[in-house]
């Protein structure tokens, strides 16, 4: 009787083939494999179950698992495509793909709209915008008077709400971003182009020939 140990890689729940993910996203197969190395690291940082929990996401961004942040909550909820409270590998790659330098600008604009449409009504309402400005002030050292916050929100609405109905719809948002492209600068992570250099160990675990 012998004792065998399988050398086949044990994948995390929600693992999807790199070739499939590469075909559906802006990533190459090698980049997807490198992202898997990052995903494994993040998904084992607090709860070792191969899935990214919100705490792990917060910890990766702030080095603090308990730091509440409205924007991290929104990003996590959008990454959690299946809405089951965790982010699996497929969701991680598909969501990060929007942040790839080669991803279509239209995808970045749409993602940012969903991010800021806090209550998912299909519009960015004035009270949502103000709530986000207040949240930003809480997390930063910036102190602005209530009047000043109102002024900034009013000015933004004057510029963005071209239909003048007191809310920003997707069409107005798109026009506004195209006039102010710096608004989606944070939707592009140049680092994603170098992901294979950051996680060279993907080569050791690769099961896909280079030619793919």
């Amino acid at each position: 009787m012998g004792c065998f140990s399988s050398k086949k890689t044990k994948y995390t729940p929600g693992y999807e083939e790199p070739t499939v993910l590469a075909s559906e996203t802006s990533f190459s197969v090698s980049e997807v494999e490198a992202l898997y190395e990052l995903f494994k690291k993040l998904s084992r940082s607090i709860i070792d179950d191969g899935l990214i929990h919100k705490e792990e996401f917060q910890f990766a961004l702030f080095r603090n698992r308990n730091k509440k942040n409205l924007f991290v909550d929104r990003i996590f909820d959008l990454f959690d495509i299946k809405r089951n409270g965790v982010v699996d590998f497929g969701e991680f790659v598909r969501s990060l793909s929007i942040f790839h330098p080669d991803a279509p600008v239209s995808e970045k604009i749409a993602f940012a709209f969903k991010l800021y449409d806090l209550r998912q009504t299909g519009f960015i309402e004035r009270d949502e915008l103000k709530e986000m400005v207040v949240a930003l002030l809480h997390e930063s050292d910036l102190i602005l008077s209530e009047d000043y916050v109102e002024t900034i929100v009013d000015k933004t609405y004057t510029d963005a709400d071209t239909k003048g109905d007191g809310r920003i719809d997707q069409e107005e948002w798109k026009e506004f971003v195209l006039k102010n492209p710096s608004l989606i600068k944070n939707m592009t992570l140049p680092y994603l182009k170098d992901i294979t250099l950051a996680f060279p160990s993907f080569v050791l675990n690769s099961e896909v020939p280079d030619s793919e």
Binding site: L61, L136, V153, L183
Partner: peptide
Amino acid sequence: AAPVPMNAFELISKSQGLNLSSLFEK
């Protein structure tokens, strides 16, 4: 100090919570 942007979305976009590059820090 840098001037405060009059565009609320520009201000919001500077949130650390929206800066995903931290995910890649070792």
